[in-house]
Amino acid sequence: MYRKIIFMGLLLLSEISANAQKLHNLRGSLIYTLGPDTTAIGDFELKGNEFKLTVVSMSPYVNVSKLTGVFFSDGQLKRVEGNNYLPARDKDSRVYNYRLNNDQDTTFIETGNGKRNIIRKYPVKIMVANNLGGDALVFMPALLANFAPEKIGDSIISSHIVFNSARKFIIKKTSSSKLLMGSAVMGMFTVFLDQNGRLQSVDGIGTSFNIKGTAGPYLNIDSVIAISIRHQQQHPKLAVINKLDSVKTTINGNHIKVVYSRPSVRNRVIFGEVVPWNRIWRTGADAATKISLSDPLYFNGKLLPAGSYSIFTIPTPDGWTLIFNQQANIWGTEHNAAYDLLKIPIQTRYLDQPTEMLTFAIIPTGTNGGILSVSWDKLKALVNFTTAP
């Protein structure tokens, strides 16, 4: 219902530019949804290499980020200034300010709340950064699409600042109307363009955000903020939150623990959509799910030595593959197959009652074995293990 109200309101309040948009001279909006919920709405404007971006995030509270900046001619960031505030409190109630400046190929990013500022430097040029405006990160494709390579198959390589380090960021033109854009941490967004090269939509399913975006005309962003605040007041508990949780047990002296983040169904179609078939899945949310063992375990007779591992799966309609990866402490989209230690087929079955929040379980069976399972929505995947071969 909220999504319908937002879209109807935006159609009434939008300001449509009289001039046809051109590359490097355009304005428009992008609306991101997660299932039936609108999660963020943003206006973007690009004049030459100068840009403006205003993003209204809906969850857990209405939060506004405003950026102005300048790109280098290749789309990397030269200068950025901006701030973030909570409009329900006060228009001047700023959460933090941020500033970026590139000097001789070194990027300086300053963040602060007016009382304490932190300046960090990175010896690279960049295209995106997590510490520049909250959800503004996922709105940058609307601007960066205009710097994409012209030739199909070509790529532009830059950097993404995340976890206080520079990760590789890529923009690749895969067809006349499609780009791949992202990094190993944020995941790869598919950006769809019209015949004139303008943004039409963004598919972020399978990324760290699992959202979809639709482009539209430039909006009356003050009205968007007002509508969002009213909805927040009427529905104060609506929030997109992945709950960090753990489960542990001891079987035959072997201490076993799984630490994971629990996403919710939220009226979405999970398997086949939010979790695409035949692709690596973090099997949780946020950081990769981690299992720790004090002693070895055996899955289908195959040894998993004592230690800590990240857990991934490859769900398919006909069965799943469970993967234990030696990189235990990584973000959930950073799977590197070179570190896969053990792959085993696992069973799946349909549940009588759907599970709203993804749930891991370790169930002892006798004195020498157990079952590791994960349940979400209408499916449960499970595998038997033993503490001895």
Rank of each mutant, 00 (worst) to 15 (best):
P345R: 00
F385W: 02
N83H: 15
P345F: 02
K302Y: 11
G370T: 00
L322Y: 04
K91F: 10
D74E: 13
K378Q: 15
Q233E: 15
T111E: 07
D245T: 10
T283F: 15
L13E: 12
S57E: 02
I161E: 05
I156E: 09
K378I: 15
N131Y: 07
N210L: 01
I161H: 01
L342E: 00
T313N: 15
E110V: 15
T316E: 14
N254A: 10
R349W: 00
I251P: 08
L179S: 01
V383C: 01
W281M: 00
V202S: 01
G28R: 08
A142M: 05
F189C: 00
Q326A: 13
P123E: 06
N84T: 11
G206T: 03
L303R: 05
N84M: 15
I311P: 03
T68G: 11
F271N: 04
P364R: 03
S201A: 11
E334W: 00
A288F: 04
D194K: 01
L322C: 09
P389Y: 14
P354E: 07
I344E: 06
Y96H: 11
L144V: 05
K4L: 12
A381T: 13
K121R: 14
S175Q: 02
P36W: 11
V95E: 13
T33M: 11
N329G: 13
A129T: 05
S155F: 01
S165T: 09
G28N: 03
S373Q: 06
N210F: 07
T106A: 06
V70D: 10
V240R: 11
S57D: 11
L23F: 11
T367C: 06
G35R: 10
I161M: 07
K22Q: 14
K91M: 10
M58W: 03
I118P: 03
T106E: 13
N164L: 02
G213V: 04
I323F: 10
E110K: 10
A226N: 01
I170M: 09
L12D: 09
P263W: 04
Y32N: 05
E50K: 11
L144E: 07
A18F: 15
G69Y: 03
L180Y: 09
M8E: 15
I227W: 12
Q234H: 14
N102G: 03
F192V: 10
Y61M: 12
L30H: 06
G75T: 05
Q21W: 02
D318Y: 10
Y218Q: 12
W331N: 06
S246L: 05
L13P: 02
P141C: 02
L143R: 08
